[in-house]
Write a protein that binds this DNA or RNA. Structure first.
Lengths: 175, 175, 175, 175
DNA sequence: CATGAATGAGCGTTCATTCAT
DNA sequence: GATGAATGAACGCTCATTCAT
């Protein structure tokens, strides 16, 4: 899967399975010992990366802390992971918009970020978006994060500042 | 190009050129009279759709009006166009993340929304994002719009309300 | 199709489509311009050969002649065609037992030999097989012909004699 | 080999060796401890089935009995075995026409039915086929048997009657 | 310029066979 | 001897692109 991530970053989702196998140092046929089809590989990879990202985001989370502080912690974790794992993030983005993901995968994806959704739910409840659907709020957070991560990656010297900048923007929206 | 849009929506970016040609009612070979390669078609299509969207967004814009009102007008135009032209929007999204777009195309894309960028520039100047790079602000507006449009499409009965909801969220971020 | 026949004779039904295409002097992809799939090619080829054989068998048939004479004429035509077109016959045999033929093809096959079946029907009516199902009588004739053709091919010097020998055996069975 | 028979019936001769091994309850690699190649397995299987059929056909044969009666006994044995072992018969048929059988196997095959050939030889000697090659007579008997077995299998209620019907047809040819 | 048959490189996948354990 | 993961050649089929008409 690491090999797949590496190879997809440079060759896109149309990367030949043979190339992925080679990158992994195995014969092309061997790939199909582990994944029934290329699509299957993509789906598993997507969930693995998504889960990793979700786990990274909730590290060191103190449930007792203030909501704003909790959220900022998640934000810091999340953006840091994305900046440090830009390949994984890029592949995640590509897979997310591809039409290779099965409905099952799409359905399983939100569960990897359930803890964050819970937190967001509590934030939303008392703010201006109290009547907006959760999906919308999640989408807003997601896309604000994406923009922030892009900015942090482009100008990594000021990464910390940008991180805060993005979070403040998010918080203005939510509360 | 209309045919391409229609066909790509249902078949994805891997749609055979022969299929696009058939949808357009011409011979498969004829397609290559107008576009050197499939990639070329994609690039031209992307710019055309982007331009159309940009033009739609600035319709009826009154430069004399208040900034907030101007921005809301753009927002209404934009989201309405996207809801009414969901096929075009979908294709635009697919092309945007594809690795078929040339650097030239990516460079030319912002110019289609120059008027909006100008407006955004003025809004930003006096707000909390005054020190953030323009690209970041544009990305925020873009992604907020995307989320809003999704919401409006899913629940079109309350489209107007959702449009306002999204705009308010955006405005909170920007000012 | 001629090329397919030639190539299948030497390589069996597992002959690569690329080989068939090359034998035909076209690119491997071109084969699929004419036949949707390899299976499709096999089905069409089967019916073509079967039809050709059926047509050959009923050449110069005089409906006014005695039944025995008519039958002998068919027999002579049939065995001669088979001996002269041993490649086609061999491919026909291979296709006949393969599991590539669709039910449609199997259903269409008897129609190519309808005239012979009619004749056989009249012969059977007054003989010892009057109560046997037509399918059985057809199978008997078929297999007797096969054995005869093999004999004629192996020892072509006495082909004519063998042809008569086979026919007499058939006639003894039928009448 | 039983497993191979079972598996080939449902999957054809292109059945994966892995499938055959699984059906036999052994690891896929183990299959190659007993058979050097897949072709080798096919050849051995063919001879085994052929031998079994030949043995079944000559059961309870009384050399003292009249030729016709002896032949009928063989005929009854043979058709009964084939009807009761339709899987084996089907596989035998598939193997017989496949191009996997080596010349050695083809050469060894007749020996499995030597006793029947002997009997047939004596029948032929005094009949209308006295001058026909033995191979031809064997082929006739074979194919008549095949047709009869098919009929018996399709309409097993009247199996006995069909058996007699087929034998009478054969006998008319031979004597 | 329009056509559409022809091209052939390239892909995902299969499977007989090997071999380290 | 038994295992089953690993192998890699081979296959059927697709499709962007070409070009003679």
């Amino acid at each position: 899967m690491e090999a797949a991530t590496r190879f997809i970053v440079t060759h896109g989702l149309s990367a030949p399975t043979a190339g992925i196998a080679k990158e992994a140092g195995v014969a092309n046929g061997s790939l199909f010992t582990y994944f029934e089809t290329k699509t299957d590989l993509f789906n598993q990879l997507y969930l693995e990366l998504k889960t990793e990202m979700g786990s990274a985001a909730v590290k060191n989370l103190r449930p007792a802390a203030e909501l704003r502080e909790q959220c900022f912690q998640v934000w810091r974790n999340w953006t840091k992971w994305a900046v440090c794992n830009s390949e994984k993030r890029r592949v995640l983005a590509q897979l997310g918009v591809s039409d290779e993901l099965t409905p099952e995968t799409r359905a399983a994806a939100p569960k990897t970020m359930a803890a964050i959704a819970d937190m967001l739910e509590r934030i939303r409840a008392n703010g201006p978006l109290s009547k907006a659907p959760m999906g919308f709020v999640v989408a807003l957070m997601n896309s604000t994060a994406e923009a922030t991560i892009d900015l942090m990656s482009q100008d990594s010297t000021n990464a910390k500042k940008h991180c805060k900048l993005g979070f403040d923007a998010l918080w203005r929206m939510l509360s």
